[in-house]
Design a protein around this nucleic acid. Structure first.
Lengths: 159, 159
DNA sequence: TATTGTTATACTCTATAACTATA
DNA sequence: TATAGTTATAGAGTATAACAATA
């Protein structure tokens, strides 16, 4: 009794993602975080001091939007803008201790959410699911989802 | 070298869907269709004469938005509003021949797109991928993605 | 000449409320 | 009293252009 509409993987993913983002937004709200800000903190955890445009790109937001996202987190003492070591036009965004702490809380929330989501799958099925998603993402042209500065950079030029 | 951000299934699906919807929108544009209108035609192909609110729900749009979507397709001679057989408040939306024809074209475009997308997977992997997506969707509370009128209806009451 | 961050403006999209005709 | 469709209005979100500083 499945709707033919959802025989299409694209539609199925669309519907699922719509719901997931909705739910994720609700779960993050008590922490005062938007999903994009979670993504931002996550990027910084992995590589502190990225410039705003380096954060904007993987998050699929325009640089004009990034300004407000950073403003918000900075005013709350979660991140800090510092002088960029090699490009004086850019602002290096650095995590502050409160930011790391809040991220840990947010990630715990997300982990619990994902555990529920994948709870119906056997452990190896969940693993396969993740791997297939990765492979399809690559096939879709999502550049292997690697660091911006690991893609084209040769040395410290873009860092 | 994967970003930790995308170790999270929710983020991975979000990123993938963002790109997929973008691409799908581009592919449909030459046909003058928005993804939602494609979804609408798809629902009608399967069950002609649904009321506007029955189309709105599975497409995750508000009934005020549905008005414009139907208006557009009706003005182009793709669908038609008729009197609803059992509820005089409602409008039954019916496909016209041109609508069926355009849908066939759109579905061909989507099929090609999906073939490319899943081209890197072996046939059985693609099948598993679809099944896992379905199961996760169900776990996420997406009500098995069945027809609105097959969920709670007992007879012709809501038809 | 191009790019980073910033601001302001315009545009799109969506959510809300209100109305009518029905149920 | 509640619901289907419609409309109008307001709010959120986004895109565009322009600017100063720097590459």
């Amino acid at each position: 009794m499945t709707l033919p509409l959802f025989d299409h993987v694209v539609c199925l993913i669309g519907k699922l993602d719509f719901h997931l983002q909705d739910r994720f937004t609700e779960l993050l709200a008590p922490l005062g975080l938007h999903p994009r800000q979670f993504g931002m903190l996550s990027l910084l955890i992995d590589r502190d001091g990225l410039a705003q445009h380096q954060l904007a790109e993987p998050l699929d937001v325009h640089r004009t939007v990034m300004v407000g996202l950073v403003d918000d987190l900075e005013q709350r003492g979660l991140v800090e803008r510092r002088r960029h070591p090699v490009d004086r036009r850019a602002h290096a965004v650095h995590l502050l201790p409160a930011g790391r702490e809040l991220y840990a809380q947010a990630e715990a929330v997300l982990n619990k959410f994902e555990a529920e989501l994948l709870g119906g799958l056997a452990p190896d099925e969940a693993k396969v699911f993740g791997e297939l998603l990765q492979r399809v993402s690559t096939a879709a042209g999502l550049r292997d989802i690697t660091h911006p500065d690991l893609q084209t950079t040769t040395s410290t030029k873009e860092l």
